[in-house]
Nucleic acid binder design. Structure first.
Lengths: 165, 165
DNA sequence: ACCTGAACACCGTTCAAGT
DNA sequence: ACCTGAACACCGTTCAAGT
């Protein structure tokens, strides 16, 4: 496998879904790719920028499942599903969204569609809720009713759209 | 200063508000307290449990400013303020809330007062929004209108209380 | 252009041993 | 009971040197 930013990201995604963020080190990544750790730094600025690349990749995955015109609540649920696929997805995308919001926000939840305020609201709610949910799974705490709970709260926040103040 | 779980927590809080989570290592903490790193482990199980202690301490701080009967939106704003005081407060409390929700939730936002669903909704929204805001401050990205934005979204979610479905 | 090898400055945690 | 000292198994990142 030719070493590129893409192959590095893909391998990272693989480690992430299998073992989680705790096992995603630059050294571990290098071992998996059978290169020296330092080799990674020719293709990727640092670990943080790799996490942003990962965040962008998850956005693309959500977009593939959600057209621009998708119902915002359905889009938020899709985002949640994708975040859950990658063990610590929410924590990573929280970082990615902080640094490069526009590149990480799913098209169906963009500020162009929902307005900056609600777009940010639904993103931060989703990232916060799923981050907590993923932490709980990690510690074997039962995240009882997580999906329904999240759906209800997201719906409440989105209700403003159909009845603006 | 006698080494106890409390003095360790207080020193951690001090490092946190001055330098942030990146500088809060067990080794750094030990240096500040003028003991060997291993000494900390007699008083505290591990770093994670220290972060939970910190989270509980922030809850107490919010409770001191917000009576049980405080307006939920005002309480959420107070929580935000306290989280902002400690550079990476949101990230830490996100962890603490995941592990020990009841011990970390401010009394004015408890599930007893608001119901489990809304309590969790407002907590995860606050933690997500402030975590993003703190990351942005860290990277010198202007968190434009963060307070008003957050207030509007929190209000939308809390609006369900006065008009339940 | 792309990668290796070695180094630097760190981590969290454990545990025998001291007092 | 409480702490030291040393060790273990890691980190992210840089940089000269190789091809």
């Amino acid at each position: 496998m030719a070493l590129t930013a893409e192959t590095i990201t893909d391998t990272a995604l693989d480690i992430l879904s299998r073992y989680g963020l705790g096992d995603l080190s630059m050294r571990r990544l290098a071992r998996e790719l059978e290169v020296q750790p330092s080799a990674l730094y020719w293709h990727v600025k640092d670990k943080q920028s790799l996490l942003v690349l990962i965040s962008k990749s998850l956005k693309v995955e959500v977009d593939a499942a959600c057209p621009v015109t998708a119902d915002p609540l359905a889009a938020a649920m899709s985002l949640r599903e994708v975040l859950l696929k990658y063990r610590d997805g929410a924590e990573i995308v929280l970082l990615g969204y902080s640094i490069a919001a526009a590149d990480v926000t799913p098209q169906a939840l963009s500020s162009e569609r929902l307005g900056a305020e609600i777009s940010q609201g639904i993103l931060t709610l989703t990232l916060g809720a799923v981050a907590v949910e993923q932490n709980r799974r990690l510690f074997d705490i039962d995240p009882a009713g997580a999906a329904e709970n999240f759906a209800a709260n997201a719906a409440a926040m989105l209700a403003v759209i159909r009845s603006p103040s």
